[in-house]
Amino acid sequence: MTFLIQQTLVFAVPLMIVALAGVFSERSGIINLALEGIMIFGAFIGVLFVRSMQLSGAFDAAKQAGDWLSLQGLELLAMLAAAVMGAIFSLLLSFASINLRADQTIGGTALNLLAPALVLFLIRVLVNQETLNMAKGDAAGWFMIKKSTFGIDKNTNIGFLGETLINKVYLATYVCIILFVILSIVLYKTRFGLRLRACGENPQAADSLGINVYHMRYAGVTISGALAGMGGFVYALTTSNCASTGDVAGFGFLALAVMIFGNWTPLNIAISSLLFGLFKCIAAAYSSLDINGDGVYMLSQIGISSHLYRMLPYLITLLVLAFTSKGSRAPKAEGIPYDKGSR
């Protein structure tokens, strides 16, 4: 059960934060199809940051001394770097769709094509292979919080909550959850959030009240890029051992689906990303999943093909969309370039 909850969170949290990235962009009126590309780019930047820090030897002493606080600091810095570069990368989309009034779907697709190409090109030039890994050690050794981190012996049982929440987890997961809550409040309870949402619903009206629609849309897409870039790195850190391969397995698109399924509101998004996280977790680990801890691996014993489990997240998404699409309410002005002259 502990394993199930932790693994679900590992998949759900990047989905959640990237879906929120989508919300910020779409609520300001720009369809951000480029989430996948920005995630790929962010993952690359984060891994590159960790790698170059390791190569420079700045954190070797901390690692030797077991100074986990500064290692967590490195993790946070890498997240920050991924977020900043993700935001910069997303400027390509905002420039095309806000200033040049380009087709947002095509602009997003271009970024989705550009990110893996650029990342793979650079990885090949940098390390002459297809994957960029950490320079030394692995993600678990450097960044994972374990019992020993707090000086507790490996074999002591610290209760269900303790085992689940502070053993074998990443700080990044919790940072993302906290950010998710803060940004949801920003979107709904502050003046900035209200103005942002107004630009996605009726930009003309917002403009008539003195809100600069272009600035708001830039803000929306930039926040979106930062979150998606960070989410990409968190995904790479927690699920693929801090490696960048120019691929996030369709997570950005899945996040878009989560966003639509969650009806563009944070609470629903949190719930639906947990649901998809659960299915992703089942797909990834069904053979070693022991739900009630009795040593019986139920899911692998029913004899359903592993292919079906892998297909499930996508199949469920499609089915769920089919049932919920009638009631979904997208921001009204999304996808339409803002033109001051039009009514």
């Binding site: 095309a96 040049l100 009034r101 380009a102 087709d103 602009g107 094509l113 550009l114 793979l120 090109f121």
Partner: peptide
């Protein structure tokens, strides 16, 4: 050369990006 085939994917992506605002 020491370069690799992903360079052409970059070129393709740039072309798509530009065609997004072909209208402009």
């Amino acid at each position: 050369t020491a370069y690799n085939e992903y360079l052409t994917d970059i070129i393709i992506a740039v072309i798509v990006y530009l065609s997004a605002f072909a209208l402009v």
